[in-house]
């Protein structure tokens, strides 16, 4: 671990002369840069998925879980009375932070997408809705339901549980999928860099033997390769991440409020900037491992 950190420090400081001992080779460079770019792009997508799914899960698990709706049905002339009765019950129920009957305007706004703006609410037997905010502890839904049954005819309590749960489970699964994809992308990047570095080390066996002849230590030789692959990967990943960010900025916003669009919100935009340095770190570790293994093999 100590040697790992020391090499990382030396890498940071740079050493122009050390870089030149390995000949600039053609296709491993291009392949590494291309793969790093592709992986960077995919990582942005996977990250967008993971973060959006996370937001979704928070929504379903948070705000919605703290609210419930009470619906009151009945003939028009009983509505007022029943609503008042329900509000009284709710006031006395522990775990209810607030209860608010929707005004006529609010009810109209809810129906507008279906019936248009000119709806005459008074003439329709539509139910009255009461919005309930729970305290963090929440209330005993079963108990409340029983009490309402007795005191307020036509009251229907919907605490969102039944339809919230599957959405929450789906959002959580999606989030795991996103993070799982991130891990796979990182592992693939490590595998690609290991292969490329191994090819490059094998192709430069002659160079390595000359360096050995003049007393170069393994860590000196290894560093020349490590530096190369780390910077190539950093470059490629930066390009890929940039393209990925542009692409995700261009993604259309989802129109419905309950489906936050796939993409980054607010400070989430900063998270993808960690991808290029992380990719470089993966490349550093992979090349280092490949180099020392190869060098131990070449006696």
């Amino acid at each position: 671990m100590k040697a790992f950190l020391r090499d990382l420090r030396i890498l940071w400081r740079g050493d122009a002369s050390g870089d030149r001992v390995v000949p600039p080779s053609g296709y491993t460079v291009r392949l590494t840069i291309f793969s790093a770019a592709a992986m960077g792009f995919l990582a942005v997508m996977a990250l967008a998925l993971a973060l959006s799914a996370g937001r979704l899960a928070d929504d379903w698990g948070g705000a919605l879980a703290r609210s419930a709706t009470l619906r009151i049905d009945g003939p028009l002339d009983t509505m007022q009375e029943r609503t008042e009765a329900a509000l009284r019950v709710l006031e006395q129920t522990p775990g209810v932070a607030s209860a608010q009957a929707l005004t006529e305007e609010e009810q109209r706004a809810l129906l507008e997408p279906w019936f248009g703006p000119d709806l005459q609410l008074e003439s329709l037997p539509i139910p009255q809705l009461i919005e309930i905010e729970k305290t963090p502890e929440g209330f005993d839904a079963e108990g409340l339901r029983l009490r309402l049954e007795g005191e307020v005819p036509g009251a229907m309590l919907d605490d969102h549980e039944s339809w919230r749960k599957p959405f929450l489970a789906a959002a959580r699964a999606l989030r795991w999928l996103g993070w799982g994809a991130m891990v796979l992308i990182g592992a693939t990047m490590a595998a690609i860099v290991t292969l490329a570095a191994s090819v490059s080390l094998a192709a430069n066996a002659q160079v390595i033997s000359v360096l050995r002849l003049i007393g170069a230590r393994d860590d000196y030789i290894a560093r020349a390769f490590i530096r190369r692959f780390t910077f190539r990967t950093l470059t490629g990943a930066a390009v890929g991440t940039g393209l990925g960010l542009i692409a995700s900025a261009l993604l259309p916003d989802a129109p419905m409020s309950f489906l936050t669009g796939i993409g980054f919100a607010n400070l989430d935009w900063l998270v993808p900037f960690a991808i290029p340095p992380l990719a470089a770190l993966v490349a550093f570790a992979a090349t280092r491992r490949a180099a020392f293994r190869t060098l131990r093999g070449l006696s």
């Binding site: 000949p23 002849l213 003049i214 007393g215």
Partner: peptide
């Protein structure tokens, strides 16, 4: 150790019969 051998080689100047170099330098 490998490092010790590398260190010893720095104290030995070797002129091989078929000397090889880094051809890109």
């Amino acid at each position: 150790t490998r490092d010790a051998l590398a260190g010893a080689r720095r104290r030995i100047g070797l002129v091989p019969q078929d000397a090889r170099f880094l051809d890109h330098l």
